[in-house]
C-alpha cells in the first residue's frame, strides 16, 4: 500500500484584496510514495513544495484533487496520527522547556502514560538535547531549536515523516545530524518525505525524487535511474529541468 498518494492536486491562493489575481501554487500534481522510501521533493523557491505539504497536513484545503496518507483523506484528522512533521521554520512555545513541549505533544498523540517518559527520553537522546531538556526553549540556539523541532516530529514514532526543508539554515554539523537521522529512520523501515533544494544531500540519502517547478511536476524517478539517464550529476539535471543554462 502507498503511504502517500496525491492525485491531480491543485492549490490556489485567493487573495483577500479584491481584483488581485488568483495565485496557483500547485497545478495538477500526481505523486506516490511507497512505504520505506526516502523521497526527495525538490524544486526552487516558490515551486509549490510547502503548498503541497500544507495540503498533506490539512492546513490548506485542496482547490481540487485529493491527497491521502495511509489511504485516509488528509481532511480527516486521524490521517495525521501516524505522521511526524517538521515545518520549514520552527518555533515552539517559548515558555516551555523541551521536555514539557514533548510531553504536551505526547499527550496530544494520546501516548499511554507509561510510555511517555520513555519516548521523550529516546527522542531527546536521538537529537542530542538531553543536556538541555529542562531549559526553556527561548534560551536555545537556532540549531538546538531545529533539533527540538525534529524531536517533536518523532515523538509519536511516526511511520511517515514529512520534513519541509529540514536542513535550511543549519550549519554543516547540523545538516550531517539531520542526514544521519533520516538514514536511521530509513533503516527502521520508516517513510520520509522531505523537501529540499540542497542537492548534494538529496543525492546521498534519497531513493527517489520528484522535481517541481512553478507548481508542475517536471520529473520523477529513482535517483540512480535519473543519474544514469542523464549521465550527469543531480545539480545539472535540476538546472536543466528548471530551464537554467548550465554554467560555463
Amino acid at each position: 500500500m502507498e503511504t502517500l498518494t496525491i492525485d491531480n492536486l491543485r492549490v490556489e491562493y485567493r487573495s483577500r484584496a479584491v481584483g488581485e489575481p488568483v495565485k496557483t501554487a500547485v497545478k495538477g500534481l500526481n505523486l506516490r510514495v511507497a512505504q520505506g522510501e526516502v523521497f526527495g521533493f525538490l524544486g526552487p523557491n516558490g515551486a509549490g513544495k510547502t503548498s503541497t505539504m500544507n495540503v498533506l497536513l490539512g492546513f490548506v484545503p485542496p482547490t481540487s484533487g485529493t491527497a491521502r496518507l495511509f489511504g485516509v483523506d488528509v481532511r480527516e484528522p486521524i490521517a495525521r496520527q501516524r505522521i511526524g512533521y517538521l515545518p520549514e521554520q520552527t518555533y515552539y512555545y517559548k515558555f516551555l522547556t523541551a521536555e514539557e513541549l514533548l510531553r504536551f505533544y505526547a499527550e496530544i498523540f494520546q501516548i499511554p502514560k507509561a510510555e511517555r517518559s520513555q519516548r521523550i527520553d529516546a527522542v531527546l537522546k536521538l537529537v542530542e538535547l538531553d543536556h538541555a531538556r529542562t531549559r526553556q526553549i527561548k534560551t536555545y540556539s537556532k540549531g538546538m531549536q531545529q533539533r527540538a523541532g525534529l524531536a517533536q516530529s518523532l515523538i509519536n514514532n511516526p511511520d511517515l515523516l514529512i520534513l519541509d526543508e529540514p536542513t535550511s539554515g543549519l550549519d554543516p554539523i547540523g545538516r550531517m545530524k539531520v542526514r544521519e537521522i533520516i538514514q536511521r529512520l530509513k533503516s527502521e523501515g520508516k517513510t520520509v518525505f522531505f523537501s529540499s533544494h540542497e542537492l548534494g544531500e538529496v543525492e546521498t540519502v534519497c531513493d527517489r525524487i520528484a522535481i517541481l517547478h512553478q507548481g508542475e511536476l517536471k520529473t520523477e524517478g529513482r535517483v540512480s535511474d535519473l543519474l544514469r539517464e542523464h549521465g550527469t550529476n543531480l545539480e545539472q539535471i535540476f538546472l536543466k529541468i528548471i530551464g537554467h543554462p548550465p554554467p560555463p
Binding site: 492546513f59 505522521i83 512533521y85 505533544y105 496530544i108 498523540f109
Partner: peptide
C-alpha cells in the same frame, strides 16, 4: 505569528 499552530495542527487535533 509564532507559527506554533503548524506543528500542533499537524497532529491529530481537530
Amino acid at each position: 505569528e509564532q507559527r506554533t499552530i503548524f506543528p500542533l495542527l499537524a497532529k491529530p487535533v481537530t
